[in-house]
Design a protein around this nucleic acid. Structure first.
Lengths: 359, 359
DNA sequence: ATGAAAGCGCTAACAC
DNA sequence: GTGTTAGCGCTTTCAT
């Protein structure tokens, strides 16, 4: 910058004024400086500007796994709003180990970020208390525990209730619940919704129809084998990651003739046969809302905002909920039997969620 | 920091020494300072450290779309290596508009990043010349044009040749090529491989069997309708995003009885019926290699590295390549006809790529 | 419309 | 083992 100032025979401050679009610069001077900047190949150092201002024009996004389509869609939504405001997005995968959450997030917070958006993996965010004054934080998908932070979550309980009720209406009474772990709030709430739906229908709750650990392909198979002993005719999968593990698992253990509704859309759900009926979530909207809240908090520090926003979800009926245990024989042939229905159904081509490949 | 120094009655420098793990601090002093840091709730300001050092402990990742599973897997790979080195990862989606590439990347570069990893969307990276001295840059998936940068790409030509040859061996002679756009090098190279395979088999190249624009669901359908006029019996899809659009499209236009091989694995490819045969790419490995190269470049500025690394790809045979146009009738029934084969084939459960939901 | 000086929070380089 | 000085590149404040 000094070189530019020298070349244009002005002071450093005037150079600064030029690339800050300060109107108080004579057109001639501005010209001269711009020319010098070109010639000297000068670009302002964002780091120094940032340091001076005390805030990095960056929002952090911390999610369990950025490679999970659900979370990458959230990141995409955050990004859409961030770019419009000249803010960069730094993403971090927290992984499956809850104890990693705190150190990872605190190291992010040390960057003096413009804001932080997190889908937590642990069940205690009280360590964020000391940071709450300095960096606006917003939670997505999962509400914080022992910490009062803004959050945007989905209607987990209601969605699970809808899904379960849908299966009940199709005549199912032995409906399995397959989830990740109760320690994440979404799974907890969805189990509540599942229970409530059973209760509302007068169907007794049976613990042997509830299982966890479908976070991995192997876990999904173990879960299925456990469930199968209880003779379910339908399954409710508690999240998209589970669904993506459970569906191949069902094919593998020859239980593809169970009806299925999953919470959360996922890539190719509508191309499977039968196409998977899901509760649609709109994750990129979640990201956009979170990013907008960060901006609002900064713009209006005194204003009160609703801490917790619960977004509605809706059932996307495709075909997997129509599969009937009684109609087919066990094994893969059961899938074939239902293909005609699914393949020709008008709903099969539904593309409701933003999880589809490209728009 | 000054407050801490005062509270512990030492100088600022000594405080700095403590949180930098400098051994030249008396244990008693260190104790005293640590206590003061706790009490005053002090955390070192990363921004200032960063500014002082002149480099942000951040690598940029710029890809067409972070929500695309292929690119989010690359980002995940970068992240894995980055965290081990206390480096944050900032991701940016370049979008589908090539002209956005330069401004977006240059604004990233102004951050004095530790390094930048790019999958470019434009076909001219000459603007990076002026930055090449200051920030190590590595290209992934797509080699740079008019710019000499490190790159890690896949054997596009070879993989496409393998895929096409595989279809030819299954008796196909009218094989359609369906891609995004020739302006990205991968599609260009894959078309070359496709042509070469036809040539090697003595099959004449027919332009009416080649189409582009399958970047969107609508584009895929248009592509399919165009292709269908030429009466193909099989399809080669040039990338995962195309495959994810083409497969639902095939169902929609009742062309599901075409054999298919796709370049690039994608979520649920192995759960579809027929399961999709693909050329497997290992995107997260691409990310890890790129991040390691950045670190290597920094550690050994003088050392020579191979500019261009071409990674081998391999065919993952599932079932979609076995579909035979002659065997089924047109429409969804064609799918049903092949389900038995696919569903019971030993290869159906293959999980080769890192694109599967969770590991 | 332009410039001079001071300083953001931290850390090399050098005392002591 | 600990302190002092100076400065990273920019911008704010206050003159001129």
């Amino acid at each position: 910058m000094h070189d530019v100032a020298a070349a244009a025979s002005v002071s450093a401050k005037t150079v600064s004024r030029v690339f800050n679009d300060d109107p108080h610069v004579a057109p001639a001077t501005r010209e001269r400086i711009l020319r010098a900047m070109k010639e000297l190949n000068y670009v302002p150092n964002t780091l120094a500007q940032t340091f001076r201002s005390g805030r990095a024009p960056v929002v952090g996004v911390a999610v369990p796994d950025i490679a999970d389509p659900f979370f990458s869609a959230i990141a995409r939504g955050v990004e859409e709003v961030a770019v419009e405001n000249n803010i960069a997005v730094s993403v971090t995968s927290l992984g499956d180990e809850p104890s990693r959450e705190q150190p990872v997030i605190e190291s992010l917070l040390r960057f003096q970020l413009t804001g932080l958006i997190v889908a937590p993996t642990s069940n205690d965010q009280s360590y964020l208390e000391r940071w709450s004054g300095s960096t606006p934080m917003v939670f997505v998908d999962r509400a914080p525990t022992r910490f009062a932070g803004d959050c945007f979550v989905e209607d987990d309980r209601g969605g699970a209730h809808t899904a379960t009720t849908h299966l009940i209406r199709h005549g199912h009474t032995r409906i399995g619940f397959i989830g990740d772990t109760l320690s994440i709030p979404t799974t907890h709430n969805r189990l509540e919704g599942y229970k409530a739906a059973l209760d509302d229908a007068g169907i007794p709750y049976r613990p042997e129809l509830v299982t966890f650990g479908a976070r991995s392909a192997a876990g999904a198979i173990a879960s299925l084998e456990f469930l199968l002993a209880a003779g379910p005719t339908a399954l409710f999968s508690s999240d998209a990651r589970c669904s993506m593990n459970v569906i191949p698992g069902m094919q593998e253990v020859h239980s593809a003739d169970l009806a299925l509704v999953g919470f959360g859309d996922f890539p190719m759900a509508n191309a499977l046969r039968p196409a998977t009926t899901v509760i649609d979530q709109n994750p990129s909207n979640l990201g956009r809302l979170a990013m907008n809240r960060i901006l609002d908090r900064i713009a209006s520090p005194a204003k009160k905002f609703r801490r917790r926003t619960v977004l509605p979800v809706n059932l996307v009926e495709r075909a997997s909920c129509l599969v009937s245990w009684e109609a087919g024989t066990a094994g893969a042939a059961g899938v074939a039997a239902t293909v005609g229905v699914a393949g020709t159904a008008g709903t099969a081509g539904n593309l409701p969620s933003e999880l589809r490949p490209a728009v």
